[in-house]
Design a protein around this nucleic acid. Structure first.
Lengths: 159, 159
DNA sequence: ACCTGAACACCGTTCAAGT
DNA sequence: ACCTGAACACCGTTCAAGT
């Protein structure tokens, strides 16, 4: 799953292969199918784990006394700067028309939970939408232009 | 190129195939290679045309007396609602780590020109970054959640 | 319980051959 | 000038076979 997550964040759903992941781990591609019967199941499992960990990291920031918007911004920031990659759900979501229901629903879950958490913390629903969209978009922009500092600059207005 | 643009906006770079596009047009895949020697060249050509048309559409909005931010917002809005798909450069950019220099540079061109045009119209550079990021992110969010109205709600704060 | 090799129809790409 | 069929190494997936 670590290998799959890394590759999906770089290349999206259709860009990663069972054979590559098998090689990363040191087995044959048919062995990966033993654990994850289809590519959809593997991608869905990776997306679910990613979302869970992401939300945990946000909670951790909140426990440290961070403002809700700043907490989300920091976790996006770390995901970009430490890993040097896109948000997994952003990378999958950009080609969501191509995804099976199963994977699409896991990607939806990330966005829906994000909007819910921000709304429950007191933001208007439209503001919650705006914050999440701006964070995903800033991560995308920074990745495209190969300059991580653009994330901070593009999200400064949110703070 | 029309067939390629449609498919890339749905599935990204690695999700579309020469054989599909050939079938869309009514020829064999080897014939597509006659006009575009590689997948990279085809994607780069599609991205360049998309960017040119997008900027033209923005200029058309501006000629109609629209505010600069509202002009960009309207063109994104139409690209989402009329076509029911992602921004081509957003779809490609989300997996930009996977792209060859040639395609990546065309995607970069979209984002760089966007930031430039917004800056030249009087916005601070960070504001230009924020506007473009928010528009791309809102388009992504609306696509993932399969609700085009979320684009308007998520970008209302820009107006 | 976990892994493998071989097979299937798919992919980008090349190329000799056709009009 | 434009198209094609056949070939190559790749892909997801299946399955019988191994430990």
């Amino acid at each position: 799953m670590d290998a799959a997550e890394e590759r999906i964040r770089r290349t999206g759903y259709s860009g990663f292969s069972f054979r590559e992941i098998a090689a990363d781990v040191g087995v044959k591609s048919a062995s990966v199918h033993y654990h994850f019967p289809t590519k959809e199941k593997l991608a869905a499992a990776v997306a679910r784990r990613y979302t869970d960990r992401f939300l945990e990291a946000v909670d951790h920031q909140l426990a440290g006394g961070e403002d809700i918007v700043e907490a989300w911004r920091q976790v996006f920031r770390v995901a970009l700067q430490r890993d040097g990659r896109m948000c997994l759900c952003g990378a999958l979501g950009a080609t969501s028309q191509d995804l099976s229901r199963e994977v699409r629903d896991e990607v939806k879950r990330f966005f829906l939970l994000g909007i819910d958490k921000l709304t429950m913390a007191g933001l208007a629903r439209n503001s919650a939408l705006h914050v999440l969209a701006a964070l995903e978009g800033a991560m995308l922009t920074a990745n495209v232009l190969e300059d991580p500092s653009l994330f901070d600059k593009g999200t400064a207005a949110l703070a």
